[in-house]
Every structure is written in structure tokens, then in C-alpha cells.
């Protein structure tokens, strides 16, 4: 254990710009402010004396920030000597934080990015990913490390839970303008996380195919009309936007589905009967769903179906073009 001493410090002794050991991200919790306001600083922050005489924050950055906000000084802190290695100080900060709470995804990204400067990848994965409740994998490590360069608004949303980190991962390779366009889009409408992922992929692919940026695809007249159809519920708009984008990405499948729906409609199947094509119209296996309440009802529907199955219109439905 590193030796430390207690000192009473002034706030201007703290180097607020030194983020070497800073792994907290997000707004100050109201309850922490209330606590310090009411009963003062109970747990002492840990700092390290630097060669220039200023103090580097190791543990307790939020407590110190509240003290600064409230103008509380002097107050007592634990001070580590200059000789303690930066890696050791960073470890103290990490272990102190994870002992008290779950870190948010941006904080996990901070931990992995900062520890990567001191450890090789295998060590980092083995020691720190399980500590952060992450599956130890190089792919996941690389995804988390790509979160930090994202825009502050996106990071704030991820840290606060308004945007899932998986969306941060898929946005990370995009240009800033495109990322923010997606971010605003997702803040505006209640898409599920998996639909958000699907939409990023779909929009990026449409853009690549049509030589447009993702932002231009999201700003297209078709999408904007649906976004602004305020008479419909948000959930309806979500469904329609998703349908519109998928249709733009997959025009052949969409045309086939539309033709199928039209032809089935014209066939006038008996009530309670539904014809289900193979998924994506791939393969020979079609199915028929029939609901009924009585045996004679079933018999009538099956007779009617047998007649329909012999009609050229029925066979036409099953042909590709």
C-alpha cells in the first residue's frame, strides 16, 4: 500500500486540468451535493503531489468538484507522494470507484483507454474487462476504446442512459455530421436499441449505394415527411420510417411483398385463413394458417381453400415473377 498523509488543502492547490486519473464522467449527483452541504466532507479525497507543487486528483473528483462549487475550503485530504507511479494512482482511482458503484459505459471506456497506456492488451483484457463486467474480448475492447472520441452530446447521452453504448459503437466509424444526425433522430423518436442499430446499417448502406451521406438520407423528403407527421403517434411514425427506409434499401423484396399482399387480397381467402410465404420468399415451404371454432366451420374453409388452390390466381401468387 502506498504511504499517504493527511493535509488541509486550498482549492487553488488542485490542478483541475490534470485528468491522468480521472475516470468519472457525467453530471454531479444531487445527493452528493446535498450530503456535503448538510454534513460536510465525510470521506477524504485522495490526491498526489506533483513535481510542480500542484495536486493531482486520484480519488474523489466529484467530492472535490462539489467543494469547489460550494466554495468550501480548506478541507482535509489524503496526499500521495510524487514518487508513486501514474499506473498505481490510476489503479487506485479505478478500484476505489468500482468498489462503490457500477461505472457507466463512458467511464468504462475511460478506464480501458487509460489503462491501455500502461498494460499490454492481453493483461488489459484479462484484468480489467471482467472488473468492469465486460466480456473479455479484443473486439469489445476495441469498441469501447472508440467511444471516447465521440461528441460530448453523444457521450453525455450514453453516460446518462439516454443512448445505448451499442449505438455509440455503430456510430463511431461515421463522420461527425452523420453521427449527430443519427443522434438527433434517435433522441426525437422512440426507436428500440436493435431498431436503431438496424437503421444505422440501413441508412449507411443506402447512402453508400446512392452516393449520399447518411445525413442526406435521414434528411430526405420521404423520411422528413414521416418524421413531421405529428398527427400520428410517435410509435406509428417510428414504424413508418423504418418501413420506408427498409423499402429503400430492399426494393426487390418490398415490391415482391406488395405484389403478394395485393394478389392475396384479390384471392379473397376465407375469413380466418392466412397464407404465409417462406421468409424472404426463399425456399419452397409456404404455410397456411387457419383459425376456426367448430368442425363444420373448418370443413367449409378447407373446401373453399381446396377450390382456390386449383385456381391459376393462386398458383400465380407462388411464382416469383
Amino acid at each position: 500500500m502506498a504511504e499517504k498523509e493527511s493535509y488541509s488543502i486550498q482549492l487553488d492547490e488542485v490542478d483541475w486540468n490534470d485528468a491522468t486519473c480521472l475516470i468519472t464522467y457525467g453530471p454531479l449527483p444531487d445527493k452528493l451535493t446535498l450530503s456535503i452541504q448538510t454534513v460536510g466532507l465525510i470521506q477524504k479525497p485522495l490526491l498526489q503531489r506533483k513535481r510542480d507543487g500542484l495536486l493531482r486528483i486520484v480519488c474523489g473528483s466529484r467530492r472535490l468538484a462539489v467543494c469547489q462549487q460550494l466554495g468550501l475550503e480548506p478541507f482535509s485530504c489524503e496526499i500521495l507522494p510524487t514518487s508513486i507511479l501514474p499506473e498505481t494512482c490510476l489503479r487506485m482511482a479505478i478500484y476505489d470507484n468500482i468498489a462503490q458503484r457500477d461505472l457507466n459505459p463512458v467511464e468504462k471506456s475511460l478506464v480501458l483507454t487509460k489503462m491501455a497506456q500502461h498494460l499490454d492488451q492481453a493483461q488489459l483484457i484479462q484484468e480489467f474487462m471482467p472488473l468492469l463486467n465486460l466480456e473479455p474480448s479484443t473486439v469489445l475492447l476495441s469498441r469501447y476504446k472508440k467511444l471516447l472520441p465521440l461528441e460530448e452530446s453523444i457521450l453525455d447521452a450514453i453516460a446518462g442512459g439516454a443512448l445505448h453504448q451499442r449505438i455509440g459503437f455503430v456510430l463511431s466509424p461515421l463522420q461527425q455530421g452523420d453521427r449527430l444526425a443519427f443522434f438527433n433522430f434517435f433522441q426525437e423518436l422512440p426507436f428500440s436499441v436493435s431498431v436503431q442499430e438496424e437503421l444505422v446499417e440501413t441508412v449507411v448502406e443506402i447512402g453508400r449505394r446512392d452516393n449520399l451521406t447518411p445525413r442526406e438520407v435521414l434528411d430526405s423528403a420521404e423520411v422528413n415527411d414521416l418524421r413531421r407527421a405529428y398527427k400520428r403517434s410517435a410509435r406509428q411514425r417510428v414504424q413508418e420510417i423504418r418501413k420506408q427506409l427498409l423499402a429503400t434499401r430492399a426494393p426487390r423484396l418490398t415490391a415482391r411483398k406488395e405484389r403478394f399482399d395485393r394478389e392475396v387480397g384479390e384471392l379473397k381467402l376465407p375469413a380466418g385463413v392466412r397464407l404465409v410465404p417462406p421468409p424472404y420468399f426463399e425456399g419452397p415451404r409456404w404455410s397456411l394458417e387457419c383459425t376456426f371454432e367448430r368442425g363444420d366451420e373448418l370443413a367449409t374453409r378447407l373446401r373453399k381453400l381446396a377450390e382456390l388452390a386449383d385456381q391459376p390466381e393462386f398458383k400465380q401468387i407462388m411464382e416469383s415473377e
Binding site: R208, R249, R256, P279, Y280, F281, E282, G283
Partner: peptide
């Protein structure tokens, strides 16, 4: 590359393929 621009569907073997009508 533009080879991924066409629409793909998951086939019965789970591989991604062109939509059936285009293949035909």
C-alpha cells in the same frame, strides 16, 4: 467496393444472397 450495394436476404443456409428474383 460496391459489391455490397445490392440487396441481400438470408438464405436457407443463413448465407446472405441476392433476392430470389434477381438470381433467377
Amino acid at each position: 467496393t460496391s459489391i455490397l450495394d445490392e440487396e441481400f436476404i438470408p438464405g436457407l443456409d443463413r448465407k446472405l444472397r441476392y433476392f430470389r428474383d434477381l438470381r433467377v
